[in-house]
Amino acid sequence: MTDFRLTDSTLRDGSHALAHQFTEDQVRAIVGGLDLAGVPVIEVSHGDGLGGSSFNYGFSHTDEKLLLKAAVDEANRAKIAVLMLPGIGTKEDLREVADIGVQVARIATHCTEADISEQHIALAKDLGMETVGFLMMAHMISPEELLDQAKLMESYGADCVYVVDSAGAMTMDDARERVALLKANLESQVGIHAHNNLSLAVANSIAALDEGVDQIDGCTTGLGAGAGNCPTEILVAALERSGVHTGVDPFTVMDVAEEVVRPLQPHQGVIDRDGLLLGYAGVYGSFLLHAKRAAERFGVDSKDILLELGRRGAVGGQEDMIIDVAVELERQAAESQASA
């Protein structure tokens, strides 16, 4: 019996960092390694969830359904999970992945919009999948408001509801308060999904565990959106040193990180200024690479794009707003140059 259940999302959240270019061979190598290490759940999807392959979020190199078939085929012990965002993916996607052999469906909404997930959570349960409700950008509302939304997801049938720090904006107190309130008031399990913008992903996960969190997400080497996720191998090592039973072999997962995932990583997991700003200003992590690209395309500063997105209250999925903001900044720059 482990003290919590680990879900590795390298092949979903990590997909953002690779612009959704994972290949079937890479999926097999990563799933094979994590399965051997004892990671109990492995998530595989486009970074923006099922159906995310698009102009707005980036087209997948390989159809995610093919990647999922490879993952299911490769896993001996681990369950394969998917993420889906109502409004992007549809119920048909859930039916297809259930047929492929996916065992865990994670249904994600912005933290105030849980009621759009009712049909999807109910369908995933009907299809026999374990179902997780995934409340994104959970730093934006109070713990009490978050609890109301979590209760909705629980009422639709979610087996677990996650506190998702999509912007990497939570301090340890923020994480602790939210997890504690949900644990005290829900029958279902509670999970935490942390990002590393403030260099607190492992610390926030451990703080959540102190409050009794049941499920924790990591990504091997931290490969993920924005400044990256909670690095799976570091979380496992830190917890094992703290006497927490993770069920994962620290040495094997370190090998997967070093030998399989790190060579794919486009840049070492450094928290640069843009990554830090996302956490500081509370901006959705997946915007990072899109903002860097738009900055180059329109000759404006990525920092200005990210801060403006924060001011406008952009939520997850609004990648199109990055183009909008960049075009406007370009125009403002041209106007101020003309008037100077």
Partner: peptide
């Protein structure tokens, strides 16, 4: 087609 709901106040 993709649909997003944004809860910002004042409403967008």
């Amino acid at each position: 087609a993709i649909m997003i709901l944004n809860p910002a106040e004042p409403p967008i």
